[in-house]
Design a protein around this nucleic acid. Sequence first.
DNA 1: ATCTTACCTGAGGGTGCCTCCGGTTATGAT
DNA 2: ATCATAACCGGAGGCACCCTCAGGTAAGAT
Lengths: 197, 197
Amino acid sequence: MTDTVVHIAQRPKRGDAARNYDALLLAARSEFESHGTSASLTDVATRAGVAIGTLYRHFPTRETLIEALTRDSLHGLIRHAEELESSSEAEAALREWVAHAVDHASVFRGLAALLSEEFYREGTPNHAACEQMHGAAERLLARAQAARTVRDSVTSDELWSIILSAAWIRETSPAEADRSNVVLRFALDGITVAPTP
Amino acid sequence: MTDTVVHIAQRPKRGDAARNYDALLLAARSEFESHGTSASLTDVATRAGVAIGTLYRHFPTRETLIEALTRDSLHGLIRHAEELESSSEAEAALREWVAHAVDHASVFRGLAALLSEEFYREGTPNHAACEQMHGAAERLLARAQAARTVRDSVTSDELWSIILSAAWIRETSPAEADRSNVVLRFALDGITVAPTP
DNA sequence: ATCTTACCTGAGGGTGCCTCCGGTTATGAT
DNA sequence: ATCATAACCGGAGGCACCCTCAGGTAAGAT
């Protein structure tokens, strides 16, 4: 039988509820994009044409809202990792995916900090997402290490930190002075096996 | 003997004002250390045994308070850079100072973000501090480049980003999982001259 | 002792967070 | 078509924090 957690056939949402849910997501995306993850939830509700209580009904915490908002992008990221795992060149695959992960982790100002926070706290809405990202990074890293292009001493935790810090640089600096790509390249250069003379 | 507080000219503060100023700094240090740069200013005032209006009289904004709080540490950092500029080994000097700078930029949670923010905005309380740090980094970097141990393409802006991102990693992760040193080393390894094959 | 004025206080208006419960309405069953 | 019911919605309300400002207080000069 089903002894694992089974999310049973949720009765479909009522029409108005579904509409409000979507309107909230749309409004939240817009607000978070311009004001970061600490945008006013009151404003989100207003923009969605909904009362604040309705927002909290659908998303009991700010974090659950952000989780819903980034879910699709996360799935794309995981799928991308799976594709790359059968790609030819291990190091190139790693670098490409890491760049993609940085994109994902920096769509809103404050997202990198949130992911970092929830990575260390089980049970938080984004913890599972972090774990998945972390797992994908780990596999790609191991593959590059097996191909002897990345130092063996590097851990996936360290790679995770590299990704998040690059994302943080991007959200923190003005677009015209974005140094995240360069700094990311330095860090990745730093973990590759140096052809010691 | 030479105390750092040489601040000139200003008519000396009244006794009670000076006492309150000191009490506020003390209280603020404690609050910021435990709650980060977004600690409640109400709590700071309470802990200092002073009304909220008094806090705002001495420190019109949160940023000026933080600036006052980090001023001494900053001066130490600048002095350290000057000493190192005459040190023997250029790359070692750079690495040592960068590590010190990371320490400075991560004493409170949120400080790295503040420094990043104010680096790009002239006139903010910490802008001058950022400029000074940036300048020191630039000189040490140029020296390492002249010694051909660091890639010429690396700019001081990029080095600045490396420092701040390492500081961010430190403030963001729990102490027992602090990866900032390792990630910093990767980035510094990445900017050193690689014997290109 | 008196005066000047820097200094201090704390109430108050503004914003945002989150909760709670009475009223509303979609939906499936009769 | 009607009804029962559970899901849903609204928005007032309590709390916390931010920052300001008018009026009272007292330090230090004369």
